[in-house]
Amino acid sequence: MSPIISDIIKIIIWPPLWQLIVLGLLLPLGVVVFIIWFERKTAARVQRRIGPYHVSPRIAGGLQLVADLMRYMFQEIIIPKTVDVAPFIMAPLIALILSILPVVAMPFTSNASYFPIGMRYSLIVALALITLSPIFVIVAGWASNNKFSLIGGMREAYLITAYELIVMVSFLSASAATGSFDLVKIVEAQAGGKWLGLLNPLALLAALIGVLLSTSGFPFEIPESEHEVVAGAYTEYSGLVYGINMGAAYLKRMVYSILIALVFLGGWRPYTPGPGFVSGYLIPSIVVFIKATILMMIFSFLRAVYGRYRLDQALDIAWKYIFPLAVAGFGLSLALAYLGIY
């Protein structure tokens, strides 16, 4: 092998780049495409329909999403005269970037040579980066200069206040249990089937509901609730920018799912990463992705079963029931730490 090719390969699998481009963007995008297809198919099955079919009947309409993507790509992007153009265009792009950025702070292996950044405070960094993107939904709603967009953006703002604390407390209960902000240590502490999600289901449940609230999954699909606010903050968007908006929401849910898989579901365990790229990096990251995908599938399934809560009810549930649940999970984690399980 010539040195140039090996250099190129080295650059590609340089952990920060690999993690952000492949594990942060391409692989989640693939998973998201699968999940959107799965969501439509699941809803169709529960609703006694067939779902996507005619685009590719042999693989159960699997190419429907590609067709949709093509449509979004070639659709005219209409920018209304009344919008504030710069934030209108920038907000979805920044939201997209910010929703995949947390991946750089997530380890997919315990092999230290494949960490993209230092892992000492990785949980804190990941959570901090995750909470940035909703602001740009509000910016998009404000810049659209449309009543429905504004109401949608405001709903997002209301919901941030509700879910942020829940997500923080429930994820930090892992730190309380293991005494570390290091995601690698948190995962390694769960080795041998001691998954935090099993020992501390309260924190897991709170985290799951927090994620549903934050990514407007059913039954909390409130900011984009079609029958009052058309498409929420995205009402004025069209074409690829609208597609980016929708994709960003799913990518954000994917990133959350990866984090839950790491913190609560044992990360790459039961697989033990070895040396080398394949066994030390590729296989553990695939294990994490499989766990995250299963979580995404569960989130998708709820669409078929639930309607949506009212805004005030969602806030009510978040503050009155889920936040105490998260705090109880935190306490349970402290008890686990006290008992010396981790």
């Binding site: 609703q47 006694r48 329909r49 039954p219 309607g307």
Partner: peptide, 16 residues
């Protein structure tokens, strides 16, 4: 009614 409440299954079932 079902789809107004965001309940897509309750939209498809009665129509079916």
């Amino acid at each position: 009614f079902g789809v107004f409440l965001g309940h897509s299954t309750m939209y498809m079932w009665p129509f079916g």
